[in-house]
Amino acid sequence: MSAAVDSADLAIETHGLTKRFRTQVAVDGIDLAVPRGAVYGFLGPNGSGKTTTIRMLLGLVGATAGSARVLGDEMPRRLDAVLPRVGALVEGPAFSPYLSGEQNLRRFDAADRHAPSRTRDARVAAALDRVGLSHAARKKAHAYSLGMKQRLGLANALLMPRELLVLDEPTNGLDPQGTREVRALVRSLAADGTTVFVSSHLLAEVEQLCTHVGVMSAGRLVTQGTLEEFRSTGEERVEVLTADPGAARAVLVRLGLVVDGVAGTAGLETLLASAPRPAQGAGADDAALVTARLSGDSPAPDAIVAALVRDGVRVRGFAVRRTSLEQRFVELTGEGFDVVA
């Protein structure tokens, strides 16, 4: 479903990118296309190849086959030209435990030949300030909490002005405030035109943050495109909880909806399962759930409710259900806890 985009507008572009470790294929011929300026959510269950892909994009791991271009240049051949423009948080932050947060940042900054030492003090201070760590700058890194380390990792990615940020699970270990701050940070960076490639398995986060989505499963990229495309592939449906299923069905059919189910509510798990029910003995089980598919030319949901009520249907609950990102995700990657090995 990915639209054809001109290569020049892609921040990350891979063709048949593959990584094999001995006999195991970790990444299996993926074709990523991340437009410049996008906030690209890179989704996938644990062990689906996300981190290996990121490591290949950053030149830490050599690809077995295929090619990758980052910010228009081939990786890893043009690594020295590409990486100074890329900020990265890869598989959790890592620091020398006996150096302070500030010293750690200075050390990483000194490792970058393109980072001018003249402005180092100012840039380190600004990066620490941006992630809210200024007060802990002189603390030893081993005394940092997980959330503080995560923030310090983000600060490291922001030491220089970047065209692309690659963030692997950036909100891992952060408290709700920290998560919100990271989200705000990513938004503000994206607003400045920075492309953000963020891997996550937190779907709610991706839904709030991203403009584009790619889903990995067992080493393959099973889908990618804009968030809207991704969601619209799923369908929308209405659910009516009512004691008059027959009448409700008639109204819905008259409005042009395709009714595909009338069921008792017992044992049903729906959004409406928690809807208020009459007290026991007052006909608690006479209610049924009528579900129908919404199509493009269906009336607005509020008009549907109005029509139902006008016809005397006792509406006890009404919901419009869109396929959630989570549902789509599970559809694509399969159920279950088994890590693909």
């Binding site: 490591r55 950053l58 030149g59 830490l60 690594l79 020295d80 990486l83 100074p84 890329v86 990265a88 890869v90 598989e91 890592a94 990483f108 900054d109 490792a111 970058d112 030949r113 980072a115 490291n156």
Partner: peptide, 8 residues
Amino acid sequence: RYLLVAPA
């Protein structure tokens, strides 16, 4: 990994 992506 952070030294190498700096890039050192």
